[in-house]
Design a protein around this nucleic acid. Structure first.
Lengths: 269, 269
DNA sequence: TAATAAATGTCGTTT
DNA sequence: AAACGACGTTTATTA
């Protein structure tokens, strides 16, 4: 029995509970915004942007305090069915089955898990306040070029980053060593034809304002199919640069300060 | 103790195990390709296409028989770190910590979870052979009709899709076999009276511009209460079409090319 | 195996 | 609230 007045333990485990105990534990965990794991034999229905049906089988359901839900099968990284954060939950017994519904009113989406048999219920009060750090993202590549413009090319001088233009934002705008305006678009993956077109749109929008000559440089670790042709056709350029090198540049800065761009005159790719 | 000779139980649960028991249970579960859940206080490192760092906190790790791994925090549908199916695992104790590594050799990617404290281990032998069925979204229905206009009716020729009009967007605009302008509104669920009114609004807004005769066709798998009457009252039409049939049309296209509309002259609903 | 397109993409940001 | 772009996108399909 999970007391209403007592503080519940950080970890509650029920093996092979009957439906009544399971219902109580699930309602308790969700209402107290605990993390909930339910393993059991169930079928799953989803109705919303699409609809899906999954017949009976044993799966794991994970419900988080933020109101997200996911149903995992024995394979695949991604859940077979899910509901994003902010979902509402309704649990009830019906003719010997335990029915768990996660729904989002606005989006008109419903996820329904109908348990024939509950193998396990785990209710956890997880404490996790740590920050997640991701390195070598596209953002890091941008930071690295701004910190050390020679990563792009000798003599490049950034003017602004994230400059708004008609269709979006120019990653980096600057001038090359001859003073020519240069639009830089950064990709952390091999650049696709779409990326080239994106860069071109930015330049087009920009040229309207400036109507002077503008260079366009695509920064990426490589080129996907069709990108080379698109670049040539549009008269744009590419600078091969890996996210890893950018991440290294940033981490080295932390140790040696911001002098690198003045000291280092070599190119590393 | 989990015997090597005996068949292990379908469900093994260890609450607050010491490191040795935890190590044994984890190795056993992974080697026997069981589904494994580990909850505990840990830090997480990832090194591969990018790199990431997550300091100490309580999380849930889910490892599946297919060699996929994911680390879940208390929020978000998506795992904070993961490793796709086919990963290899190495578990060991080191200075009072339990270290779980999931790596992919070819991709040179490593996920490392370092447990300071194990709250719970669950090792499951899940049985799940069911097939997952996903039925098409409304967007797929639109695509299917554009691909094979005869799904709507013989001789229909689409002009545009998502054409903006006063109240929103016309799903598909086209001409029937007599050249009469036709507005198509698609619903993936049984169409309600509201859907009929929506179609009517689009037509009204459209007639202002064109002031020629315009047909309105509601595409839906069925009609909800009151929809039939509304259609009749407004002089609009309905074409019954299920998302499933659209999905089939789209998947068949991939196999047989885009010739279907020329070959197929029958209607399937 | 590599390239391409779709996804109930998810998730953040900005208008 | 809606739109846009990035993502360690993932995933399936096809050449």
């Amino acid at each position: 029995m999970i007391g209403a007045t007592e503080k519940p333990p950080r970890l509650v485990v029920l093996e092979h509970p009957d439906n009544e105990r399971a219902l109580e534990a699930i309602k308790d965990a969700i209402s107290k915004k605990r993390t909930l794991i339910v393993a059991g034999r169930c079928r799953v229905n989803y109705e919303g942007r699409a609809s899906s049906k999954l017949e009976e089988g044993e799966r794991i359901v994970l419900i988080k305090p933020d109101g997200s839900a996911q149903v995992h099968r024995t394979r695949d990284h991604a859940p077979v069915n899910w509901q994003p954060p902010g979902s509402l939950f309704r649990t009830r017994l019906n003719e010997g089955e335990l029915i768990l519904r996660a729904f989002r009113r606005k989006e008109n989406e419903v996820l329904e898990v109908i348990f024939k048999e509950i193998l396990l219920i785990v209710s956890l009060d997880l404490i996790d306040t740590a920050t997640f750090y991701l390195y070598a993202s596209e953002e890091d590549m941008q930071k690295a070029i701004l910190l050390r413009p020679s990563l792009l090319e000798e003599g490049f001088k950034p003017i602004t980053s994230e400059r708004p233009v008609e269709p979006g934002f120019i990653d980096i705008l600057g001038r090359d060593k001859f003073g020519v305006l240069t639009v830089v678009e950064i990709k952390r993956n091999p650049a696709t034809k779409e990326a080239v077109l994106q860069l071109n749109r930015y330049i087009q929008a920009f040229v309207k304002d400036e109507r002077s000559k503008v260079r366009g440089i695509l920064v990426a670790p490589g080129l996907a199919k069709g990108a080379q042709e698109a670049l040539a056709a549009l008269g744009l350029e590419v600078k091969l640069l890996s996210p890893q090198v950018c991440a290294e540049t940033l981490s080295r800065r932390k140790k040696t300060g911001q002098l690198l761009d003045f000291i280092d005159d070599g190119e590393k790719v």
